[in-house]
Amino acid sequence: MDTENTINSPLNIELRRVSNYLGYSGRAVIIFGLWDAAKTVIQFILDPETFLQYFDGGTEIARKLAVAFIVFIVMVLLTVGLCIRFFIGIRAISEGQGKMKSPVYLVVTGLFLIVNTAFMIMDFISVRVGHSEPDSLLISVLIEITSDFALGMILYSACRLRFLNRRA
């Protein structure tokens, strides 16, 4: 009996497990993306005056223009970030359902993860130089980790799925 290809062979079970992880991770990335966007709106968009502390001097009009420019940049970055997460999430869900396979979204996921990790390191540095409080940092890091866990899960699941499919 060909046990390797039976419906409940260890290989097929592992394939189903990893596909399931990929699908759920994709959904989680989308939800975390929406949540991150909401948090950014609360923190940055509604009180752009926060940025004024970085601008000393200059006329009132110049300061307002600078603030408007920063708000615009943040909005663009927010939209781009959200689109990237949706792209990653939808591709992951699709691959988890066995519909589509694309290496592009994995590269994007990896880059996104690296960028997020870089921001986390910057948070550590800002504490060292006294710009942030340690307790704020801890919360910020924990939030980043929960968000990046889904991205990491996508990378792991997708790579494992490809490896297993090659064996099958």
């Binding site: 419906i7 592992e14 189903r16 497990r17």
Partner: peptide
């Protein structure tokens, strides 16, 4: 179907 206890096993 896949039962919750089956660890991704399919039951006929």
């Amino acid at each position: 179907f896949q039962p919750a206890w089956g660890d991704y096993m399919i039951i006929l």
